[in-house]
Design a protein around this nucleic acid. Structure first.
Lengths: 183, 183
DNA sequence: ATTATTAGTATCGACTCGATATTATTGCAA
DNA sequence: TTGCAATAATATCGAGTCGATACTAATAAT
């Protein structure tokens, strides 16, 4: 009976994910496509390749490859090949793509009935949990540049000490695959 | 930007569910089959039909029908047709079925690194969230008999005032589809 | 120059999805 | 009692996702 609580928490997460997935279905977007599109809309320009989508989603390369092609067919994202490394693809989200993301699912509705402190402690608990799970699976955490140890805040944006690239103000709030928590 | 936190929480839940699902795959059990089997192992004898599995999982009747037949083929559950209403099927989990559930997934591993009070507040937050989501979708909550308004504790078990059935002690801790929180 | 690694695709069978239709059984009303 | 709606389970369709595996193309390492 030692595992009663951990089993319960896993069950809650699975049920929430399932009811949320059922709610995310639309005419032209299934849960996997939604997750990929949602990630691309929040990732920075160094983190929008099929491999990185795959890692963030804990999916498989083959599936993500198909998923991105489907999103591209539907005009929600656009493929941009790198001229430096021609194996590399970065996807950009189109206006129609951002519009498709502008929905409120059942989880957000339910969250509105939670007090702010409860929301914050829930977010903190889930964050810690995810961090542990990613660590256990040997995966990178991903995260916003402004909380990264390689990020140097600067007037008018920031600078990535790892990739040696200047960042616009809005880019410091995007998700990077190289993110490492500040010390 | 009002939705920043709720979006974040949804993203955390989706990522946790995905990394957990990837971890749940085994040779003879995919995440959906795991979820169905896990539910059947915890549900009481009034709540183990395909329809009820469907509702608990927020899945579809067709898929669950196939899923249960697959589990049955693998010898993890057994079909029992009711003699009273011959449309009705109740499934029982076999020894091999219970054995297949005896695993620790990545979420449980990560939970072990959380302090007990944090686990409890996380469980409470997720429970509230799920309750709200189920309500928003017009679905029944499911829950253990001993916390149900129709349950009368008795020496040597309990009694369901709704279904007019006596319950063994262990049955009062199982999940019922008719569950309604006590007043 | 050869080899290893990386990024992206393609294919296989099994499975899940929403949507829809069908069968069998039960309950209800005329 | 007959007729009809409601219910429970199953079957089918195309599209999509899964793990697994194999493949091409481009780059990096030796």
């Amino acid at each position: 009976m030692k595992r009663a609580r951990t089993d319960h928490i896993r069950d809650l997460i699975e049920r929430l994910a399932r009811i949320n997935a059922a709610d995310e279905w639309t005419d032209d977007l299934n849960p996997t496509q939604w997750a990929a599109l949602s990630y691309l809309a929040r990732a920075n320009r160094f983190s929008r390749s099929p491999s990185q989508v795959t890692e963030y989603m804990s999916a498989t390369r083959g599936t993500v490859s198909q998923t991105l092609k489907a999103l591209s067919r539907k005009g929600l994202i656009e493929e941009v090949r790198s001229t430096v490394d021609r194996r590399w693809i970065s996807y950009t989200v189109t206006k129609r793509g951002f519009a498709a993301l502008d929905r409120t699912t059942v989880i957000e509705q339910a969250l509105d009935h939670l007090a702010e402190p409860d929301q914050e402690s829930l977010a903190a608990g889930l964050q810690t949990l995810l961090q542990g799970a990613l660590e256990a699976r040997g995966k990178r955490p991903f995260g916003q540049c402004r909380s990264c140890r390689h990020h140097k805040p600067e007037p008018g944006g920031g600078y990535c000490m790892l990739l040696h690239e200047a960042l616009k103000p809005e880019e410091t709030m995007q998700i990077c695959h190289e993110h490492q928590a500040a010390a």
